[in-house]
């Protein structure tokens, strides 16, 4: 009996699952992206994408939306995470839980709430699409920026700051030269969790003002038109952007647990 069962065999079902439902779909995407509707191989889909001012405009627009959203999230999240992590209040755990609790409320319901509030303040949301897109995305993704930065700053050994001040650094210098660099991993992981969804989560915009112009929406419209080749092309372009981004961010293992909404 011994030797027949090895613990590594336990992974076979999951390995097969990953191959069929993760790897194979990517193969299909690549195949569809490099063939036209008649099945002839070529790069026509990409030529179309990069020569059509509409699709190219969408790419640029979504990069701008994602960048602005990321900056706004960072501007709100960093001070919040910093003050919370550095403060001496006892109920830190409860407060950070309150900050990320919205992650567990269905995002379409949260956006409904935001939409009602914004409509009361602004009236017709379609009049300021850019501003409302950024507000909506920021509202949706802010917890994903706060949590990793908070975790990272909490982990920093505070005696390093004392050491810095003993060595003559003032508070600004201690922050800029010690704390900020040490908190960067959290910032990078927050950025990668906000930037990519902000390029693709078109439902937020769809719900706020009924029309969207970001990369994700192109997939949605190709899907509705049964244009699998067009949709695959956009998917592949997004995948390339995601890959570049991940390589730049240095492949973050932290991301899994944060995006999953785990704080344990």
């Amino acid at each position: 009996m011994k030797g027949m069962f090895q613990r590594k065999y336990l992974g076979i079902p999951y390995a097969l699952y990953l191959l069929v439902f993760v790897v194979l779909p990517l193969v299909v995407i690549v195949t569809y992206a490099f063939t036209d509707a008649g099945g002839k191989p070529g790069v026509g889909n990409f030529l179309n994408f990069f020569t059509d001012p509409n699709t190219l405009g969408t790419l640029v627009y979504s990069l701008v939306i994602a960048s602005v959203t990321t900056i706004v999230c960072l501007a709100i999240a960093y001070p919040t995470a910093y003050f919370l992590a550095m403060s001496s209040i006892r109920s830190k755990g409860a407060i950070i839980m309150l900050m990320i609790m919205p992650m567990w409320i269905n995002f379409t319901l949260r956006i409904t709430a935001l939409k009602e509030l914004l409509t009361m303040i602004e009236g017709n949301l379609a009049l300021h699409p850019f501003m409302n897109s950024v507000i909506g995305m920021t509202y949706d993704f802010l917890p994903f920026m706060i949590l990793p930065i908070y975790n990272q700053i909490s982990r920093i050994d505070k005696s390093l700051l004392e050491a810095a001040s003993d060595l003559g650094a003032d508070r600004t210098q201690a922050f800029l030269r010690v704390l900020l660099p040490l908190s960067m991993p959290g910032v990078i992981s927050g950025i990668s969790m906000v930037f990519l969804p902000a390029m693709t989560n078109y439902v937020v915009l769809d719900m706020l003002y009924n029309s969207t112009y970001i990369m994700g929406s192109l997939i949605g419209s190709y899907f509705s038109a049964y244009d699998w080749h067009g949709g695959s092309t956009i998917s592949l372009i997004l995948l390339v952007i995601i890959c570049i981004f991940t390589l730049l961010a240095g492949g973050d293992e932290n991301e899994g647990t944060v995006r999953g909404g785990s704080i344990l």
Partner: peptide
């Protein structure tokens, strides 16, 4: 992106 996962 979940859009890409769902679509693929």
């Amino acid at each position: 992106a979940d859009v890409v996962t769902g679509f693929s």
